[in-house]
Each structure stands twice: as structure tokens, then as C-alpha cells.
Design a protein around this nucleic acid. Structure first.
Length: 280
DNA sequence: CTTCTTGTTACTGA
DNA sequence: ATCAGTAACAAGAA
């Protein structure tokens, strides 16, 4: 499930490969993954090029000459970049995984014959063209980016203030804090030694401080390890992330710190993992 | 066959 | 009007 570290990894992977390359082909195999009109989508992208790639929460923003292409991977979306197919002896094509596959729903071809595949098993992800005004309206709904300096302890306290719900629900709410999903919200709670179902109003000063610090520490570590492949996430080169080896509680059977059996409980409609020994 | 997976949103009720 | 909780979406794995 791509969350902030996974989406950021893809963004950085793609930066040097696709920026300013002319898009010469746009193949749409599944119209439902495009929000808005498909003909406008294709006509706008053909001959265009990406000037910048930004990320807000889990949303990728590709800046075109005039408009913006939004890409959300939701749960099973992949963005995989491949250079021109190499033909080896015997006529077989060589590449890591053979693309396109049956889940490659949208394919961009660049002038140098390299391609960008949008794969999505469950077809929840989407691409959408927006004008600047609409972009601002969409991005304004998100809470602060946890890896920027606007995410101060003071701001975090303001976000928690007066809230009548569990800490993990707050961490996962994109309108309050941008980019954390089920995996990293669970890991941040472990970092702060706080049970995910703790009502926000019962948190101590130190716990709040640790939760705030945990957001930054966990996300930075996860980016350094190129994200978590718990299911089918891959980076822009089709490679899995390595942070799964560093997860403390998410989908673990035993606590990586004290070997207690990890407990599982549904919070805010999502399965939450925690150590009954380490977390209070 | 049933159950489980999760990001986002529409909807419901307080 | 605001906030919190939940069902629904969808398709594949076990």
C-alpha cells in the first residue's frame, strides 16, 4: 500500500528519467482509471512533457506545460518506468518483469522509446488532469506534510487538541496529517510506546512529543529503505521496498523488541497491530 | 465458499 | 454546522 515513503520513492525515481521528455504515445486500456474525459486526457498529454513532479500526501502531481496530471495509486497502483525493450539472442525480450501485463491500464511512451506503465490490480487508483485552481482546491484539503518544518510540535498539539478519537485515527486522517496510512501509523504508535486505540485526550506531554518525533523518524527511515512492500508495492523500477525488514509491529506475529505476541485490533475500520508489553 | 486486505469518500447519526 | 464512525468500492489471495 503506497503511503508517503513509497510515493516519495517513486517520485524521486522518476524525476531524472521522465522530466522534459516528450510524450509521444498515450495508451488507455481502462477508461475507468481516468477521471474526466478520456479524449481530452489523451490529447492534452500527447506532445506534452512533465516539467516537475511533486508530492502532496500520497498524491503525485506531474506539472505539464500548462495543466497538472494527478496520479493516486490508492492500494494496488504501480508506476513502473522501463527503457526501450532489449532484444537478446533467440528473439526473447529481456526485462525485470514483462510489461505491459494484464494490469497495465495506462501506458505513456516517451520520445526515447522508454515507457511509463500505470498498473493497478484492483483499479482503485486514478489519473486526472486539473487546472491550477482545481489543483489548489484539492491540495488545500490535506493537513501539514510531516517532513516539512511546518509540522512543528506546536502544530501537532493543535491538531490533537479537542479531538475525541483514537490517536491512530488522527494519524491516518489525511486532512489532519498528510501521508500516513495503516502501516506507518501503526509503526509511529510503537515508536512512541503508545497503544493505537488510546484516546487522544489521555496522552501525556511526553507521549505527544514522542508521537510527533516518531512521524519524522519512521518516515525518514522508510524513505531511506525505499518503502515497505507488504503486498504488491514496487518502486519506479519494479523493485520492492526494504522497510518490511524494519517493521516493528505491522503484520508481525511477535514484537521485534520484546518477543511478545503482537495483538491485532480494528481501529477506524483498519486492522491495527501493537505490542501489549511495549505499548501503554 | 468465506474472510481478509486498505485509501478515500459518501453517508449517517449525534 | 461540526465531528466521528462506518459501509462501500474492487479484485485477488488464502
Amino acid at each position: 500500500m503506497p503511503e508517503l515513503p513509497e510515493v516519495e520513492t517513486i517520485r524521486r525515481d522518476l524525476l531524472r528519467r521522465v522530466i522534459n521528455k516528450k510524450i509521444i504515445g498515450v495508451e488507455v486500456k481502462k477508461v475507468k482509471l481516468i477521471r474526466g474525459r478520456t479524449d481530452i486526457f489523451i490529447n492534452t498529454l500527447k506532445g506534452n512533457s512533465f516539467k516537475k513532479i511533486k508530492r502532496r500526501a500520497k498524491l503525485l502531481v506531474f506539472e505539464l506545460k500548462k495543466e497538472y496530471l494527478l496520479i493516486h495509486l490508492k492500494m494496488t497502483g504501480q508506476l513502473v518506468y522501463q527503457k526501450e525493450k532489449k532484444i537478446i539472442a533467440g528473439g526473447h525480450t529481456y526485462s525485470g518483469q514483462q510489461l505491459p501485463n494484464k494490469y497495465s491500464h495506462i501506458i505513456f511512451t516517451f520520445a526515447d522509446s522508454s515507457r511509463l506503465f500505470f498498473n493497478d490490480i484492483r483499479q482503485f487508483g486514478y489519473m486526472q488532469l486539473v487546472e491550477k485552481k482545481e489543483l489548489e482546491r484539492i491540495l488545500n484539503v490535506y493537513g501539514p506534510e510531516p517532513l516539512t518544518k511546518e509540522f512543528t510540535l506546536k502544530r501537532f498539539k493543535e491538531i490533537l487538541d479537542q479531538r475525541q478519537t483514537a490517536i491512530k485515527a488522527v494519524l491516518m486522517d489525511q486532512s489532519l496529517i498528510a501521508g500516513l496510512g495503516n502501516i506507518y501509523a501503526s509503526e509511529v504508535c510503537f515508536f512512541a510506546k503508545v497503544k493505537p486505540d488510546r484516546p487522544v485526550k489521555t496522552l501525556t506531554e511526553k507521549e505527544i512529543k514522542d508521537l510527533h518525533q516518531g512521524c519524522e523518524v519512521i518516515l525518514r527511515q522508510a524513505i531511506a529503505k525505499r518503502g515497505t512492500t507488504a503486498n504488491n508495492y514496487v518502486d519506479a523500477f519494479g523493485q520492492p521496498g526494504n522497510f518490511i525488514n524494519f517493521l516493528k509491529v505491522y503484520q508481525r506475529e511477535k514484537c521485534q523488541s520484546c518477543a511478545s505476541v503482537i495483538k491485532k485490533k480494528t481501529i477506524a475500520g483498519r486492522s491495527s497491530f501493537y505490542c501489549p508489553q511495549c505499548q501503554v
